[in-house]
């Protein structure tokens, strides 16, 4: 091989070597593994599609999927409108202190989920927890409101609200900066009110970024694990109310020792997320053709 022909491969090799061993091989192995039943790392047995049949009838898996979906819907429906509202406020013309607002609101995205879980575990304690005390004095919420026992997913949504609202706001705010001010001014001169400007000028302009933010939130939310796992002291909580898909995968693979079943759960998650990404792509493309 000449020097010229070899150079691209020299540049590609470090990535390809690590990627091949620690990504491609495990993905392929995940396929074969999902057709095996394993007992720890040492012993396994080929069982065909039995793992997937077992999954279909496994009430715990469905419960995990249901909990995770509730968390995802709650996160997207509460967090993203709030993030957009904050971004609109942040982009108010002539606003002072924009940078400091942006930095402070974004900062919780630096805090890892494991650390946030430890903080919020104490925040959500009933009777003594800071959240119930604040809500009790503000809106008279029952001090014994048992977030971690009875409303696990609600607690997760609140914690995620703190962690990711500012993160999503930053994307909306960057998109809003790209909305051409002359178009907004022209709409104003034509007599469009704030709501009409929002619906007819701003929403169409930020739609591509909004699609991306929704997709990112959905993908991230469906992988919820550390937050409930650590807040509920490495359990799924009473009556498995805090069980999520990835937590179930973790329990199957590393507490029960069935890496095959864990892989089958991993594939269900993968198929679900790829399908969601596909739908988003399709919607975005249909829209592109339309406009």
């Amino acid at each position: 091989m000449s020097k010229r022909a070899a150079a691209p491969w020299i540049l590609m090799t470090p990535f390809l070597a690590i990627f091949g061993v620690f990504f491609i091989y495990p993905v392929v192995r995940a396929l074969t593994l999902s057709c095996e039943q394993t007992f720890g790392a040492g012993h396994s047995e080929f069982i065909g599609l039995a793992n997937f049949r077992r999954l279909a009838d496994d009430p715990l898996f469905w419960k995990a999927l249901r909990n995770t979906t509730i968390f995802t819907l709650g996160s997207v429906l509460v967090q993203l409108p709030l993030a957009l509202l904050l971004a609109l406020l942040l982009e108010t013309p002539g606003l002072r202190g924009r940078r400091i607002f942006r930095v402070l609101l974004f900062s919780p995205a630096m805090v890892g989920v494991a650390f946030a879980a430890v903080i919020f575990a104490v925040v959500f304690e009933k009777r003594t927890g800071v959240l119930n005390r604040v809500l009790h004095s503000m809106i008279g919420l029952d001090l014994d409101y048992a977030w971690l026992q009875d409303h696990v997913m609600g607690a997760m949504i609140v914690a995620a609200l703190w962690m990711y609202t500012g993160f999503n706001m930053v994307f909306f705010s960057a998109a809003l900066q790209n909305v051409r001010t002359d178009v907004v001014e022209a709409a104003t001169i034509d007599g469009a009110g704030p709501w009409s400007r929002f619906v007819h000028v701003i929403v169409p302009a930020i739609r591509p970024v909004a699609g991306f933010v929704v997709l990112l939130s959905v993908i991230g939310s469906f992988q919820l694990f550390e937050l409930p796992y650590l807040m509920l002291n490495t359990t799924a909580g009473p009556d498995n109310r805090g069980l999520t898909v990835v937590m179930y995968l973790y329990q199957a693979g590393f507490e029960t020792g069935d890496l095959g079943y864990a892989s089958a759960i991993g594939w269900m998650l993968t198929i679900l997320l790829v399908a969601i990404a596909g739908v988003q792509r399709w919607l975005a493309r249909a829209e592109g053709v339309h406009s």
């Binding site: 990627f19 061993v21 620690f22 990504f23 491609i24 091989y25 495990p26 993905v27 192995r29 995940a30 593994l33 790392a41 993908i219 469906f222 992988q223 694990f225 990835v246 995968l249 973790y250 693979g253 590393f254 890496l259 095959g260 864990a262 892989s263 991993g266 594939w267 998650l269 993968t270 997320l273 790829v274 990404a277």
Partner: peptide, 22 residues
């Protein structure tokens, strides 16, 4: 392959990755 790999969620690799490291 790289563009497709972006879509694979990390938890899928937990079990086979563990086995590989073993």
């Amino acid at each position: 392959i790289v563009l497709g790999a972006v879509l694979i969620p990390a938890p899928l690799l937990l079990a086979p990755g563990y086995l590989l490291l073993y």
